[in-house]
Design a binder for these strands. Sequence first.
DNA 1: AACCAGGCGCATA
DNA 2: TATGCGCATGGT
Length: 301
Amino acid sequence: MRIAAAEYPPVFTPEGTRLPASPEFSLKETLDCGQAFRWRETQSGSFIGVVEKNVCEISQLDNFIFLRGADAESFEKLWRPYFDLDRDYAALQACFRADPILDRAITYAPGLRLLHQPAWETLCSFIISQNNNIPRIKGIIERLCALLGDPLEGELYAFPTPERLASQTVESLAPLRAGFRARYLIDAARMVCDGLLDLDMLKTAPLPQARAALQQVCGVGPKVAECVLLYGCGRLSCFPMDVWMRRVMRQLYPDGLPACAQEYAGIAQQYLFHFARTCPEAFGQADEKSPNKHKKRVMIE
DNA sequence: AACCAGGCGCATA
DNA sequence: TATGCGCATGGT
């Protein structure tokens, strides 16, 4: 499947950057689907967030998306890759829609996009995410940035560097209320600082090697590694398997993902994950919670 | 192999 | 209002 083409020709104004609206770009679906944790929705429905050292308020209006404060340089260097704007999602969706289940999931949330986030922040975020829920993950990350990140405008903070985090102790991280994950964060920071984990290599190394390198970090298992590779390293065939995706696969794809979704399995996973989590009337999960829960279940794959 | 850790949002009682 | 369930990983 070949995907290219610069969509969304931007218009630069002194106030910020404007992009034409598109069915394949919904701010809310993209920023509020569990892949990124630092975007906050304002009362007016805009989103304020931080990527690297950049603070941005983004609004979705009828005919365009507006990135307030983003100039041409920051748009091209940062926001264009962050929002995956050089990928033709209409073409990608057309391929996926050959499968009837993906067709429904895409129709349910056609504006979902895969964000390309900074690798280090993604690693920490998904270490924190383990055995955890989204509101709490957001809280821990917010406290982490406020405690150790460089201050930016508007009471916002950059994500802490590996060096800063490596100098901490479990005790100094207590205010994060991260529980047993605190020592995992410190371990990850030390590995990066000591050159034992090369984050750049993860973007290009053969996947088995990249997975193995990530899982050297204490607190990084198969699921977290897959999330880091997908969201933080641009490895779009990676496919994080959490409980939701296990349900999806068991109930809807007992024979595995269809061929049309293999190459970009990670993006297919976004549509399916969001569909399963937020559209209960369309996705039965009753058999999971009820009567014979106590029975032993064979859960392999 | 089967459990717990450390914490909290959430659904259910 | 209280209780207990779920969660990804590592360690026992």
